[in-house]
Simulated scan of single mutants.
Amino acid sequence: MRNLNNELEDFLEHLRVERGLSHNTITAYKHDIHCFVLFLNKKSFKVNWDKIKHDYISKYLFQIMKDGLSDSTRARRLASLKTFFSFLLEANIINIDPTEDIKSPRNISKLPEVMSEDDINKLFDFVFSNKTKEGYRDFAMLELLYATGMRVSELVDLKLNDIDLNSQRIRCMGKGSKERILPIHENSKIVLDNYIHKYRPEFTKLRNEKNLFLNRLGKKLSRQGFWFILKTYAVKLNLKNKLYPHVFRHSFATHLLHGGASLRHVQVLLGHASITTTQIYTHLTDDHLRDEFHRAHPRSS
């Protein structure tokens, strides 16, 4: 049976590998969540993530305000809890996010970082210029991440039989073992077809190796392995502050909304349990809509 530490460690690993956060930032998240757990323990509440309700969060925020913590510290503590419970919700560990309707002491929320289309094209062009088996593998992985919005953990877990090139669909196992079928466009189909039939066999001759993306030893590529590959490209292209695994997921969602996709459509593609998780991307498109308005309106100076 899994315990509380399992969920917390999974969350911290998600922050490190999927979101590419620094050691200090992850330590801060861990500290903030431990402070909340200590508060619950003092209240003789047996901590069980799916039993935590809205009022426990409110009482905790009230207590740390009484303790004299600043608005900024309380806002950070709440932001950490919101991120953690959002992770638990997506993983089907909880059914309701107890932090959903709780407002921050400071009305400031950090929006997901998104790569511009120019930066994505710059990265893709650079990776594609690496005419090796590793280069073609990397290009296929990045193409698939941006084309589908899947998580890196989902990407490295793909098996050969999850790919249906004829119907241009991919079967993806998300958090909580939730399956979803993702469409891919023609370019992605061509890139995947090329990798699977021409370059993947150079990694291994074993027919019983079912994993789609392999390392140099012919074994399954790990999340850590993917992160190392991405960091290498980030350094070479001077994109160190822009390039981390989850940025492709953020960019996929934002660019789809820019292109006119519905919020519900994007929610299904991302595999979000709640549409409120997806709504964060609408804030990113607000600036785009304002810029387009000022560019296009005849009375805009």
Rank of each mutant, 00 (worst) to 15 (best):
M1A: 06
N3K: 04
E7K: 06
L8Y: 11
D10V: 04
R16H: 10
R16L: 02
V17F: 02
L21R: 04
S22W: 05
T25I: 05
T25V: 05
T27S: 08
A28S: 11
I33S: 05
C35I: 04
C35M: 03
V37S: 09
F45Y: 14
F45H: 13
W49A: 01
I52W: 08
D55A: 07
D55N: 15
Y56V: 03
Y60H: 07
F62A: 14
Q63F: 14
L69E: 13
R74C: 07
R74Y: 10
S80E: 07
S80G: 08
F84D: 02
I93P: 08
T99H: 11
S104Q: 04
P105H: 08
P112H: 08
K122I: 06
K122F: 10
F124R: 12
D138H: 15
L144G: 09
L144K: 13
L145Y: 04
G149N: 05
V152A: 01
N161F: 08
N161D: 15
D162F: 04
I170D: 05
G174R: 13
K175D: 00
I181W: 06
I181D: 12
P183T: 09
H185F: 15
I190A: 14
N194S: 09
I196E: 02
I196L: 05
H197M: 01
F203R: 01
R207Y: 13
N211M: 12
L212Q: 05
R216Y: 01
L221G: 02
S222D: 01
R223C: 00
K231Q: 06
A234T: 03
H246W: 03
H255G: 11
H258Y: 13
G259V: 05
G259P: 08
G260W: 07
L263K: 04
Q267D: 11
L270C: 00
G271A: 00
T277P: 07
Y281Q: 03
L284M: 10
T285M: 04
D286R: 11
P298N: 06
